[in-house]
Write a protein that binds this DNA or RNA. Sequence first.
DNA 1: ATCATTGCAAACACTTTGCATACGC
DNA 2: GCGTATGCAAAGTGTTTGCAATGAT
Lengths: 137, 137
Amino acid sequence: MITYKKVLQDAGITPSMQRIKILEYLDKNRVHPSADTIYKALKKDMPTLSKTTVYNTLKTLVEHNVLTELSLYDNEIRYEYNQDQHIHFKCIECRKVYDIDKKYKCYKNEIIEGHKVLDHQVILKGVCKHCLEKRKK
Amino acid sequence: MITYKKVLQDAGITPSMQRIKILEYLDKNRVHPSADTIYKALKKDMPTLSKTTVYNTLKTLVEHNVLTELSLYDNEIRYEYNQDQHIHFKCIECRKVYDIDKKYKCYKNEIIEGHKVLDHQVILKGVCKHCLEKRKK
DNA sequence: ATCATTGCAAACACTTTGCATACGC
DNA sequence: GCGTATGCAAAGTGTTTGCAATGAT
């Protein structure tokens, strides 16, 4: 059984209560949350938690490749623990982000036109299933 | 010959000096500028230009499909006039954005898992050619 | 005269920074 | 005890909003 503590240690990050809880939240709530969403959710059980700690932790986790940063037009960074290849669909009406299980030619770790690729993202923008339904009414 | 005035009219936007200048800047400076970059560049020749107008105009142009919004990790929106299919490479060191001429299966205007796709973007993140060179030294 | 566009200032939202306190080996 | 992690407050940055002034037909 893999614990969050072990995930952090394997990534070379000193485990702490805050770090474990943040990682756990991202593992159990696969909704591409922002720093603020994570902060508000965890604040309930950890009243002393600071937003700075959330930002610090997320930055550390991204630097150690435990999390992926998503840039999804909202002028806020969203975070994701899922490392399987998939694409993102962002609804321009409800702002929700859906994972779409489609494969694509990934350039990660390749050299393209001389540039070293470290991350590859595919983002679709549009109107989601549910918002399309609402429009019909 | 296609004028910026005509591009705006065809898109259903009332042409104005400000709007024409902003569109012209984006056509002639294909560097994926932010609102602030555009503002600072145009301010020189148009001292009365307001940042609000830049934001208003960019929003209008995006809504009418004249421009594309890019979300490139910087917590600022970048804008692009080029509508040809290509992918973006963002350097994490110098922050520059490169256009890469690679084709991909585009889902634009298709329905995917019930969602209507209006825009499709591919973003690579990594270290660019020039920053790789600098590292070697 | 009317309606849309422009522009200023203030408000907002997300993130970062500086620094003091607390924690863990 | 020492080095790192945490947390508060303030500052920084990009964007939006309210509203008055301006401009075009």
